[in-house]
Amino acid sequence: MTSSLDNYYSTNYSKCNLSESFLASWKGVAYPTDIIQIFSLPLQILAFFIILAKSPVQMKSMKWPLFYNHLFCSIFDLILCTFSTIYLILPMLGVFTVGVFSWLGIPIIVELILITCSLLSLALSYIYLFENRSRSVSQNRFKMSKKSSRIKYYSLILLSYTTIFIFLTIIPTDQETAILQALQAYPCPTQEFFTFPILILNSDSTTSMFIIAIFMPIFICHSVGHSVFHVSCTIYYLYIAPSDLISLETQKKQKTFLRNVILQFSIPSIFILFSIGIIFTSRFYSQEMMNLGVDVAGLHGIGESIAVLFVHPPYRRATGQLIFRWKDPQSSIRVSAAQGNSSAFTI
């Protein structure tokens, strides 16, 4: 600590009534997320195997969108839970990390960029997943059949996402002054504020909350809006105005895939929404609630992997046969039919 911070720590900070709870400390985000990742990683690897090796012919068009979505979800979870676990002090937008990268000496700003890029990739993979479903409906007038159109579309989305990096322009260059200003706005942070190499993204609490209140809803609405549009088109052309040229069997399969994809998206999203709710519904700021929000967000990986493995019937059967040794009734029927044909041929 510098002399100014030493003076503040020995005088003003000693008067603070601080929480000594495990959850408020850096261990409250580091240890739970590490444990979560221990359970999440085998499920993620299993989901990769099931998608690549067990996707049936009728899911051919879904195989790679599901793979890319699971890939970017896994990258985000791995970064959040293992490599760049964040400890965020929200009122002053102060942040440091307690993951593997921090012990390797990688700058915090680089880690924040990695976390942001992984989050944007995750959001884009969900848009791609729903856009692919929408494109599979042949009568959809809004589908992008041409590859060039899809490249332009996703390029524009990526370009719009880059505006989130505006936070780089508000980071104070004089961090010592920024830290002292931040302490004026929030005088009693946890002791980690003084013992870890914290980065103040913005020392003005009013500006910080304004940025969060503006950019977070815009980002969420922008990402969700694209997905809602593609889902709405799919629902309209499957349920409201179905084509007479498409067989009922094909329409039934498309409806099933759509419901499964929506459910697959909904299950892990619950953890993210619950995490945001924990952080922003508290009447007063609490570091325990902030850290708990990060821990709950870390459960996204388990929820997403379980959704992939058990939402889609072919993947559910393959997972059951691999782990629980379930018997495939369809396989038994095929074997019985084959035996019957063999007996008839012998006769």
Rank of each mutant, 00 (worst) to 15 (best):
residue 104 L to S: 08
residue 332 S to Y: 01
residue 310 F to E: 04
residue 204 D to I: 06
residue 330 Q to T: 05
residue 113 I to P: 12
residue 262 I to H: 00
residue 250 T to R: 06
residue 339 Q to E: 03
residue 83 F to P: 08
residue 1 M to E: 09
residue 312 H to P: 03
residue 156 L to T: 07
residue 321 Q to W: 03
residue 115 I to W: 03
residue 300 H to S: 01
residue 136 S to R: 01
residue 311 V to P: 04
residue 7 N to Q: 11
residue 170 I to P: 10
residue 210 F to I: 10
residue 3 S to A: 09
residue 311 V to N: 06
residue 198 I to G: 11
residue 255 K to S: 10
residue 264 Q to W: 11
residue 48 F to E: 13
residue 227 S to F: 01
residue 217 P to M: 02
residue 50 I to D: 09
residue 100 V to G: 12
residue 205 S to A: 15
residue 240 I to Q: 00
residue 177 T to W: 01
residue 11 T to W: 10
residue 301 G to V: 02
residue 26 W to I: 07
residue 43 L to P: 04
residue 276 I to V: 10
residue 195 T to M: 14
residue 298 G to N: 11
residue 154 Y to I: 04
residue 122 L to Y: 09
residue 300 H to G: 00
residue 102 S to N: 13
residue 244 D to Y: 10
residue 58 Q to C: 08
residue 6 D to R: 03
residue 109 I to G: 07
residue 242 P to L: 05
residue 156 L to I: 09
residue 26 W to R: 12
residue 257 F to V: 12
residue 21 S to D: 07
residue 251 Q to L: 03
residue 178 A to Q: 12
residue 153 Y to L: 09
residue 335 V to T: 12
residue 204 D to Q: 07
residue 110 V to E: 08
residue 71 L to R: 14
residue 251 Q to C: 01
residue 204 D to R: 12
residue 152 K to W: 12
residue 87 Y to E: 14
residue 81 C to I: 06
residue 60 K to E: 10
residue 345 F to A: 04
residue 69 N to A: 13
residue 199 L to Y: 09
residue 176 E to V: 00
residue 249 E to S: 14
residue 2 T to W: 04
residue 325 R to C: 00
residue 294 V to L: 04
residue 283 R to P: 01
residue 121 S to T: 03
residue 251 Q to H: 01
residue 264 Q to C: 15
residue 152 K to Y: 11
residue 209 M to H: 09
residue 149 S to G: 10
residue 38 I to S: 06
residue 319 T to V: 01
residue 175 Q to M: 11
residue 100 V to I: 14
residue 152 K to G: 05
residue 255 K to E: 02
residue 32 P to R: 02
residue 199 L to D: 06
residue 81 C to M: 14
residue 88 L to P: 00
residue 176 E to W: 06
residue 66 L to V: 06
residue 198 I to C: 13
residue 202 N to Q: 09
residue 162 T to C: 11
residue 160 S to G: 12
residue 47 A to L: 07
residue 251 Q to W: 00
residue 123 A to F: 02
residue 24 A to R: 11
residue 22 F to I: 04
residue 264 Q to L: 12
residue 76 F to H: 12
residue 39 F to S: 05
residue 115 I to P: 07
residue 193 F to T: 14
residue 119 L to I: 06
residue 59 M to L: 15
residue 162 T to R: 05
residue 128 Y to F: 10
residue 255 K to L: 01
residue 179 I to T: 14
residue 154 Y to V: 08
residue 29 V to N: 07
residue 177 T to Q: 15
residue 170 I to F: 04
residue 197 P to R: 14
residue 107 P to C: 11
residue 28 G to A: 05
residue 74 S to G: 11
residue 70 H to L: 15
